[in-house]
Amino acid sequence: MAPLLQVKDLTVRFDTADGTVQAVSGVSYDLAPGETLAVVGESGSGKSVHVLAMLGLIPKPPGRIAGGQALFEGRDLLAMSERELRSLRGGAIGMIFQDPMSALNPVLSVGYQITESLRTHMKLSKKAAMARAVELLDLVGISEPQRRVVHYPHQFSGGMRQRAMIAIGIACEPRLLIADEPTTALDVTVQAQILDLVRRLRKQLGMAMIWITHDMGVVAGIADTVQVMYGGRVQERGPARQVFRDTRSAYTWGLLQSLPDHDAPPSAGVASARRLVQIPGYPPDMMNPPPGDPFAPRNPFATERCHSEVPPLVQAPGASPGHMVAAWYDLRTARAGAAA
């Protein structure tokens, strides 16, 4: 099957008064129709920026696409005019952001904001669009959608606002839905409901998703494919179960190790000497990143080559097909060596 999205060697820079931020460096991947890709990373990893750059949503200047292509259904997003991009965003490509309060317009009713994209992209009449908005609110689990559709964002709770954002994101039945930390600001119970909703919608609508997050628990519940980013580069990428079970990047491994053990007896406190496994050091300064593997300075398994030369993203030896890693070290032998 032809990929829905093909990202090729995408490189993004920000030119500031203090220097150039190397936000994204040589990111490449394919996304199949209907596939859910979770992009994991922390602030400065490039996980959000690379997607925003593809959609033409980074401010230029200081932002700049320094190279690469992003082919959506064969057409390069990076070569499109603002006008062409605008016709894709909210149409074939839906978007949901972290903070619905700032993404929703406070002076327009929720229904109006849903109908806006329906009228622009699907050329529905005002009446038909409003009827569809009610349907969409119902679909995302907002009760009494008839009454709610005329309400304003401030009349919605946080969870309902995020549902409304999702309704806008899926209004035109996008082939790709991009979600940037959409549940981070929500409480766990609401987060769980939103994840259920998105899983159901994905099945109903058959859309592909790029889900940007830093939460490995959320990744575990939603991803077909996981892509772990650090320092503007892809560190590891593969089928979700493989990345969790047969981890090949020291950064992914460090992240998973640093989480509290779900099975260990709770409450460590003072009496016990139990500690979390921590990744030493701090994230890199992307104005002045390390010359080699960006994670090398914090990686206990780093080899000399890791410090001087950027490793390419390649098929991990002995791993499932499509499970890729960018590493000069072999995590399996390094861990075995450390344990011995």
């Binding site: 987060q191 628990g217 990744v219 779900h262």
Partner: peptide, 29 residues
Amino acid sequence: TEQLFAHPRHPYTQALISAMPIPDPDREL
């Protein structure tokens, strides 16, 4: 902490604990 996580009594606590995401695909699903 032991009592609360092993034997939550209030329905809201039960809902909260059951909604904690588990970083393991098989168990999370």
